[in-house]
Structures are given as structure tokens and as C-alpha cells.
Amino acid sequence: MSRAKDRVGTWIGWGFFADLANGLALTFGYMFSRPVTMQYPDQEKWLPYPRYRGHHFLKRDEEGEIKCVACELCARICPCDCIEVIPYEDDKGKRHPAKFEIDTARCLFCGLCEDACPADAIALGQQYEFSSFSSRDLVIGRDDLLAKPGKATTGGGVVAARLNTKKDVLVETKETQGYNWWRNIRRT
């Protein structure tokens, strides 16, 4: 009985284009939902999570000395052979890298160098904007790596940002936590 009723209801709905009206109502509702577009890079920027594997950076210890002991394990484990380390011994008899170069054009950002490092000296940080017009510029030396930003502390938010094309194509931001664009997605 109820099935027959259902069928009659379906036919009546079909006669009055209920499904088309439903579709129109849905798209109309979506028209007034908030767009999920991230206004990158002009106005907004996404902050990476702490687990994000961005540009490498080298760490310093408490005395400000470079942590790296130039054991070259990272260079060995690197699947694309993009790390080159040349060690030296300082006056205290400690090993440090004289040259530590990463060819980020070849790097696949697998994070194995971070895992292999016995001194916890290298890690993959939060920077993800380092495109370049020349592949030569993508070879990063020791001192540049020391200056790179470290791991993110917060992440996942979209913050207000500004495109700076004067000196470099870089997105500047002052906020540390933004809105979660994932929550803006309307799901019905």
C-alpha cells in the first residue's frame, strides 16, 4: 500500500518537476554560501601544518654552533643524491660542514635526510614558496639553509597576506593563525 502510495507520489512529483525544482533550490542555496577560494597570493595564504615537508633548514645548538657533524648520512640516504657535504675540523676538533649544498631542483622532499640525521641537524620546514627562474638559484648553500624558517607551530589556517614583488616573489604575513577554510565548504 505504502509502496503504491510512494509510486503515486513520485509520479506527482515528476509531473510538477520536483527534481528540477530541488536542483534549482540547491544551486540557489550554494550561490549564497561562502566561497572556498583562497585569495592566494594577493590577500591570503595557507599556513602549513607542523608535519609539512617544505624547504630544508639547518639547526643550531644552544651555543649557536651549527648542529651538523658532517657525517654525510643524509647525503648517503638521499634517493635523488641532491645533498653534497664537505666536512672540516674546527680548532676545538669538532667536525662541521664546510660546504652543505642541497639542490632543491632535484629534491623530492621525502624527508629521509631528516630521519637519517643522528645529530638532529637537518629538517624539512614550513617554507613552500621558493620557485625560481633559474635552476642554478635552487642550489642552496649552508648559510642560506641556516637562515631558512623552521617547522610550523600552528597550521591549516588561511591568514591575511600580501604579495611582495619588489624584492622577491614572497608572500608576507603577520598573523599566525587564520580561519579554517575547510570549514567553509558547504556540504549538502
Binding site: T27, Y30, M31, F32, S33, R34, P35, V36, T37, Q39, N184, I185, R186
Partner: peptide, 13 residues
């Protein structure tokens, strides 16, 4: 614009 907003985009900006 309408297309963009119906698809949760912004359209030309």
C-alpha cells in the same frame, strides 16, 4: 560570477 558562486568559487576577481 553566478557560475563561480554556485560552485563555491568567486569568479573573475
Amino acid at each position: 560570477k553566478v557560475a563561480g558562486h554556485m560552485q563555491q568559487r568567486m569568479g573573475p576577481m
